[in-house]
Design a protein around this nucleic acid. Structure first.
Lengths: 225, 225
DNA sequence: GCGTTTATTTGCGTATGCATTAAATCATGC
DNA sequence: GCATGATTTAATGCATACGCAAATAAACGC
């Protein structure tokens, strides 16, 4: 176990962590520009590690480096969300299929099952934050079970981008009371080793989620997040 | 048109370009370690832009930064190749489907058709390099037609990694005489607007290519590329 | 000899300063 | 009044320097 000893994070690592946090929290809002030197002084370090962090986050698609204009926090349009959801749909479905083929024991799948149960509880409590957390856990765990490190990396990256939008989208959408039935079906297919059903079910689930979300964004005229 | 005027590339951009080239050409071989300062002097610049380039390439999965051990050019195992092919399969199939839905004109699809014709010629000539180039073009164009910028970015990234292995794999595999029939079928489905067939056909094509390649690597005991 | 400690080397992370160059501002002519 | 070119401003890209920590070598005790 990790016994409390925190390894001293390097400044550039701190910068990555803190900048991500600032982006997710909205402290750095989408579309806003920031000079390297400003960020550096906010984070109490020199430009060098900030620059390195910014370079990495640019690779993650969270921001954009525009020489002499500053660092721009990338906004997400509905069509960006559509793109992201399409990628997530394909790769998570692959993960579901691979997970089903892996002959996992119930113990291996316990985290997945737990996430589903947590979502049920959250829905019963109408606790949107808890639901969002459990939903994250479900998808993270599903992808982990697929055991494709590239898929895991890409899905995490895309999920990060979605996470930013969640603050705005979470409270305008209806409680996803039905969606957990899909989750359970995916879970059972994996458990049963039925790769085709796992894949197909998850795929349809994700496609449905996409249309719901995109329609919602359009309806609320949320052009950018 | 771009009339010959080349904008002066920044040093870190040059570093990215040159390091990539050195990796693809094998000048920096898979598994080898290199100090930042060595690379810097090879590229005639200071450590700073090299470091920035390395950071970006690390995000692309081409190398790994191991403090005090140097920059490690990442080797690709057969299971890495399997992972990559799985991702490519899913995302390219998505692109094929989306392309079919886009109602492209023959003119829009001319590059795709051209790539297929080029492959035919290359196969007739037994020109493996020409075939590889045309094959690249086909896949690049297919994904471009899918019009999902994230898919394009990810596929390019994964293709880069495959490209490194091609030098080793190209000459041990049989001439892909049959594969072009698949390409044509995908093309025709896109042209006909038959998204399901385009998707399914390309998917099967890619899965087939994966098993061929992975088997070949195993058979030749190519543990790392 | 061999394991342990201490010295030395060396590569990295970061700070800093400067030259470059794009943007912004201003001046000038039409 | 507007456009165009000159001038100023300022953010960046990069080189350089330095301290720290890790790796290696050397010295030492057993």
């Amino acid at each position: 176990m990790n016994v409390g000893i925190e390894k001293p994070l390097s400044n550039s690592q701190r910068a990555v962590r803190d900048l991500r946090e600032m982006i997710f929290s909205g402290e750095l809002s989408a579309g806003s520009d920031h000079l390297e030197s400003e960020l550096a002084s906010q984070l109490n370090m020199s430009r060098t590690p900030v620059r390195e962090a910014v370079l990495m986050l640019e690779g993650q698609g969270l921001l954009e480096l525009r020489p002499r204009k500053g660092v721009r926090i990338l906004p997400l349009s509905p069509s960006d969300m559509a793109e992201i959801y399409d990628v997530l749909t394909e790769l998570e479905s692959l993960a579901a299929q691979d997970a089903a083929r892996a002959n996992y024991t119930d113990a291996d799948l316990s985290d997945l099952a737990q996430a589903i149960d947590d979502m049920d509880v959250a829905i019963a409590d109408s606790d949107l934050d808890a639901w969002a957390l459990a939903d994250d856990n479900f998808h993270t765990e599903l992808v982990r079970l697929g055991r494709n490190s590239r898929v895991i990396a890409i899905v995490n990256m895309m999920s990060d981008q979605v996470r930013r939008a969640r603050a705005s989208t979470l409270f305008i959408r209806p409680l996803p009371t039905k969606s957990n039935a899909d989750h359970r079906l995916v879970y059972q297919s994996i458990r049963a080793g039925d790769a085709e059903t796992a894949r197909k079910t998850h795929r349809e689930h994700r496609q449905h989620a996409k249309t719901i979300l995109v329609d919602l964004l359009e309806k609320h005229r949320l052009r950018f997040l």
